[in-house]
Design a binder for these strands. Structure first.
Length: 104
DNA sequence: TGATTGACAGCGT
DNA sequence: CACGCTGCCAATC
């Protein structure tokens, strides 16, 4: 816990994302303390230990596009989950202008 | 310790 | 608007 890796920080941040809201990998990376580490964030997501404590489906690309997801039918399930939580969608992409969340 | 990978982001064409 | 290339960072082999 003391020497939390970038991944541990990411998990904590993602876990704070409320339902109906999403964040971009880049934003999570910045909050984790390392702006530009968006790729590293994605790597942690795929290695995510439990989707219950790490709602990785609430993390999308900078353009609102859904990428990856290691559960269910992949991005399909991811989209369904987001829609089910109230995230605004614009076709196959999330409407970041309405659903992007930022730490208070 | 060094090299490779990966669910990205930004810019150019 | 769609596609491609480069750059960044951390984790893993």
């Amino acid at each position: 816990m003391l020497q939390q890796t970038f991944t541990e920080k990411v998990y904590r941040i993602v876990a704070r994302i409320p339902e109906g809201k999403v964040m971009t990998y880049g934003q999570v990376a910045v909050l984790a303390g390392s702006a530009g580490a968006a790729r590293a964030v994605g790597m942690c997501m795929k290695n995510n230990p439990d989707t219950t404590i790490v709602p990785c489906h609430r993390v999308v690309a900078s353009n609102g596009d859904l990428t990856g997801y290691s559960g269910g039918q992949g991005v399909k399930t991811k989209k369904e989950k987001l829609l089910s939580e109230g995230v605004i969608f614009d076709g196959e992409r999330v409407d970041l202008d309405e659903s992007q969340w930022t730490i208070e």
